[in-house]
Design a protein around this nucleic acid. Structure first.
Length: 612
RNA sequence: GGGGGUGUAGCUCAAUUGGUUAGAGCGCUGCCCUGUCACGGCAGAGGUUACGGGUUCGAGCCCCGCCACUCCCGCCA
């Protein structure tokens, strides 16, 4: 019996037709003399009815023996439900199928967890969900996530195609380029002691493709980073990777705005207004204390440096004298913060090297604070005005070097928003999406410990043209032609206009990043070579595809939008990988495992060390 | 590498200050039930309290260790 319809297809218009549905037993309601079975497939579910007057006793008994998640093929006639028994909760709720034929395709054992009840299933321990991922993915919520992912991938591909882009596949067996994230290494059987690395991104290949004259490249590219995991970080993940020639930043902005417009329309039927707002790195830090601001709520940082320059409160005035700033944040309605909450915020401040966290609770018409006694009337007045202080507010201060002060309060701002959300005092519309370009990042940062400059994005990022002379005189002031696309406080992606002149690239590598010329040659020689033979000006961007889908599916974890994700320790609970390999496999690869094999039988961690 | 949280029946969770035989709902098994859709009713089975030690007359609860999952910091050019 081959299916004639899917389980979300039958409507009153089909009444009278004989149909066959195939799928899983979603739920069974056995009334004794009458059995209802909801059959479910990828599309939805349909109620079927087993009435003994239409069936042989054997068939009826077989229906009674089915349990949840058995796979069946059911044949019968579509009919109206009796008066008053329609089910408005499902699209097929006006009809039912009176069954005359039943074929059991596969019986199911009792399940380790329920997949039919969304309330229960969504709370099941993730460990169990990952172990039985094939059951987890049957849940309508997860099936929807997979569907959104597929639809968005296809929409993105067709949009890029319409814009004249070519999708080009780049190698996943690549060269180790030990800058940036730790890489996964792949031993080479053909020559002892040599290794491939899995790419952290197709960055270098896509730039080479520009030299190759591809002009417009994109790829849904799998990338690998051997770093610790988070809710939004997996060791392998997907990027929508893009590169274009003969363009400037505006072209990238316009392209991505068009792409995201298409994606949001496809996935959520939402019309995203464009162009997106833009904010400089400096302004983002000044106002929100972070380079990926969530602008769906206020509580912006306020600069109080001028007002406390001559304060008798030495913690503030001293910091200012030392070249620092005083910034403040009004956490509206948080005067009732608990000791524990203040403690948490203080810990944030301390993690940035601050000694403590100054605060004022505005309660009962009073400023309750250990530091207010040091403030002059003028200082208090300045605070009241600039921070719009009202009853019930909590004012928090950071006095430190500019970047630190901003980042401390940025962290606290997000923490306060979480607290207020949990208390219901801050409500954010789940359909609100604040897109934002963050631009004009500093090209370089300085590592005090290693006493050298490092690229804040990556070493191929071009400086803003008018800042190029500063490279040799004041590198700190050089802005990069780098841009991040941010939505609701999540970094969706980033990119830059690249350096296409070999001499500028050489300056960056050798003079600023202080990579010895031999090493530059070894690691990036082929790129510098390529740039000698006619490299067009080019630039690009990469969007985190998993994060994009997670935002569209309204889930905080990208594991929910990846079919087979890894746990926080990088293992796959379903296949039990990584696993140990045979002695012969290791021998072929010239690898000797020196660490002791794990003693616990259920935890094969299989640490491998390269043979050297 | 560091910090926090969790782990009790197949699942989700209870269990007073350390005190009787570790409970409930769902699921499961059996019986009854012809209009249910969270079907209903009756009965029943089901526990190494993650694991290993310790303290105690007595430990799910306290202590030490360990494992797994999870969140965060570091890390992620």
């Amino acid at each position: 019996m081959k299916r004639t319809h899917h389980c979300n297809e039958l409507r009153p218009a089909h009444i009278g037709q004989t149909v066959t549905l195939s799928g899983w037993v979603h739920s069974r309601r056995d009334l004794g003399g009458l059995i209802f079975i909801d059959i479910r497939d990828r599309e939805g579910r349909t109620q079927t009815v087993f009435d003994p007057s239409d069936l042989t006793p054997e068939l009826f008994a077989q229906a009674a023996s089915l349990r949840s998640e058995c796979v069946v093929s059911l044949t019968g006639k579509v009919r109206h439900r009796p008066e008053g028994t329609n089910n408005a909760k499902i699209p097929t709720g006006e009809i039912e199928v009176g069954i005359t034929g039943l074929e059991v395709l596969n019986m199911a054992e009792v399940l380790p967890f329920a997949v039919d009840d969304p309330e229960v299933a969504s709370k099941v321990n993730e460990e169990l969900r990952l172990q039985y991922r094939y059951l987890d993915l049957r849940r309508p919520e997860m099936a929807r996530n997979l569907k959104v992912r597929s639809k968005v991938a296809i929409a993105a591909r067709s949009f890029m195609d319409e814009q004249g882009f070519l999708e080009v596949e780049t190698p996943t067996l690549f060269k180790s380029t030990p800058e940036g994230a730790r890489e996964f290494l792949v031993p080479n059987r053909r020559e002892a002691g040599t290794f491939y690395a899995l790419p952290q991104s197709p960055q270098q290949f896509k730039q080479i493709l520009m030299v190759a004259g591809v002009e417009k490249y994109f790829q849904l590219a799998r990338c690998y980073r051997d770093e610790d995991l988070r809710a939004d970080r997996q060791p392998e993940f997907t990027q929508l990777d893009i590169e274009m020639s003969f363009i400037d930043r505006e072209d990238i902005y316009a392209l991505i705005e068009g792409l995201l417009k298409r994606v949001w329309k496809t996935a959520l039927n939402i019309d995203v207004p464009t162009p997106f707002k833009r904010i400089s790195f400096e302004e983002a830090l000044n106002r929100y204390g972070i380079d990926k601001p969530d602008t769906r709520f206020g509580m912006e940082l306020v600069d109080m440096t001028e007002d406390f320059k001559a304060s008798t409160f030495k913690v503030f005035s001293g910091t200012i004298t030392a070249g620092g700033v005083v910034k403040a944040l009004n956490a509206k309605g948080m005067a009732g913060a608990t000791q524990g909450q203040i403690e948490t915020m203080t810990e944030y401040a301390k993690s940035f090297g601050a000694k403590g966290l100054a605060f004022i609770k505005v309660e009962g018409g009073e400023w309750k604070s250990p530091i207010v006694k040091f403030f002059s009337e003028a200082e208090k007045a300045a605070l009241t005005t600039k921070l719009a202080i009202q009853e019930g507010d909590l004012i928090l201060f950071a006095a430190d070097q500019w970047l630190n002060a901003c980042e401390i309060l940025g962290k606290i701002r997000l923490y306060c928003a979480d607290v207020l959300k949990a208390q219901g005092k801050l409500v954010i519309d789940p359909k609100q999406f604040n897109f934002l370009w963050v631009i004009e990042f500093p090209l370089l940062g300085f590592d005090r410990e290693q006493n050298r400059w490092y690229s804040s994005h990556h070493p191929f990022t071009a400086p803003v043209t008018e800042d190029i002379p500063l490279l040799k005189t004041d590198p700190k002031k050089v802005r990069g032609q780098h841009y991040d696309i941010v939505v609701n406080g999540v970094e969706l992606g980033g990119g830059s206009i690249r350096i296409h002149q070999p001499n500028v690239q050489k300056t960056i590598f050798e003079e600023l990043l202080a990579i010895p010329p031999e090493e530059t040659k070894l690691r990036f020689g082929y790129m510098l070579d390529a740039f000698k033979y006619g490299a067009p000006p080019h630039g690009g961007i990469a969007l985190g595809f998993d994060r994009l889908i997670a935002i569209l599916c309204n889930t905080p974890s990208i594991r929910d939008v990846i079919a087979f994700p890894k746990t926080a320790k990088g293992t796959c609970l379903m296949t039990d990988s990584p696993s140990q390999v045979s002695a012969k496999q290791l021998r072929d690869l010239y690898i000797e495992v020196k660490a002791k094999p794990p003693t616990a039988p259920a935890a094969p961690a299989a640490p491998t060390a390269p043979a050297k």
